[in-house]
């Protein structure tokens, strides 16, 4: 058998043009900015980068950002899938309005979302006032950050899972039931594997979005060093000091951690796709 050519010819014309446009755009909007960040880091030097990152305050911020982003993405994974399921499978009044409202976190400027959430959950806000009575403060604590991250990440899971659920015919569940499977067995062994790849994609997107989120979190976080200071704020602080190198170093650290996490999620995804048969 001869080796397959590097680019497979197809009957569809326009490969050269479309690939050219794609690579050009990708270079312009993705590769160049990330390249500039790496270049900045390369000029700064590995030991300097490490010295910048290896401080209590930076570790605290990174740990806070990634931990809360992960928890928010987990929360969104569960509730995003349930929301998508409800929107596809049930008919109830107001369904279309709720369906449209899911996209609002995409459309709303994040600062608006942050201010609105703060106004609601501050100790003198409508909901914050209630929780305050039981001694549970939300705004200006880690709970507030978590809430903002859930808000910005929710549509990712719902919108990636929704089309997949639409594809699943109710016959599949019925067939499973006639073959003697219980409800929970059908859910675990028939439905869940089919949803898994899309749900993981949504999870990864939600996580990635939360890690980089600045606009909405900054209003509700409190921003106290070591306690409620997120990593993107540290980058902004370094920029305010005209310290581009240190800002780049923290940016690189976030990039590296995010990349590792996304790679790991992709590996799980490949594994789960293989397991259910269609790669």
């Amino acid at each position: 058998m001869s080796r397959a050519p590097l680019i497979q010819r197809t009957a569809m014309p326009g490969l050269g043009l479309s690939a050219g446009i794609t690579f050009f755009m990708l270079t312009l909007v993705v590769a160049l900015p990330i390249g500039a960040l790496l270049w900045q880091g390369a000029n700064f030097g590995l030991s300097n980068i490490w010295a910048t990152i290896n401080r209590d305050r930076v570790w605290a911020a990174l740990w806070l950002s990634f931990r809360l982003s992960f928890l928010a993405a987990c929360f969104n994974l569960v509730f995003g899938v349930i929301l998508a399921w409800v929107l596809v499978r049930y008919r109830f009044p107001g369904r279309r309005i709720i369906d449209a409202a899911v996209d609002l976190p995409f459309a709303l400027p994040t600062a608006v979302a942050g201010i609105a959430l703060t106004a609601l959950y501050a100790p003198n806000g409508v909901l914050g006032g209630l929780t305050d009575q039981i001694g549970w403060q939300i705004a200006y604590t880690r709970w507030g950050i978590f809430l903002a991250l859930v808000f910005v990440g929710l549509p990712f899971v719902t919108r990636t899972v929704q089309p997949v659920i639409e594809e699943i015919e109710t016959e599949v569940e019925e067939a499973s039931a006639t073959l003697g499977a219980s409800r929970s067995h059908t859910l675990r062994h028939v439905i869940a594997p089919m949803l898994m790849p899309a749900a993981l994609t949504g999870f990864a997107l939600s996580l990635a979005r939360a890690v980089g989120e600045y606009g909405s979190v900054i209003f509700i976080a409190g921003n106290i060093p070591l306690r409620t200071e997120i990593a993107p704020l540290l980058i902004v602080i370094q920029l305010e000091e005209y310290n581009y190198d240190a800002a780049g170093a923290i940016g690189l650290a976030m990039l590296a951690i995010s990349f590792t996490m996304l790679l790991f999620i992709n590996l799980i995804q490949i594994w789960s796709r293989k397991r259910i048969g269609h790669v």
Binding site: A119, N124, Y140, F219, N223, I224, L233
Partner: peptide, 19 residues
């Protein structure tokens, strides 16, 4: 208790949020 990033933000926190 809250370190806002700008002067207007701090005024809002104090005046509107009651912190």
């Amino acid at each position: 208790p809250v370190l806002d990033t700008g002067a207007r933000g701090a005024t809002t926190t104090f005046a509107q949020r009651g912190i």
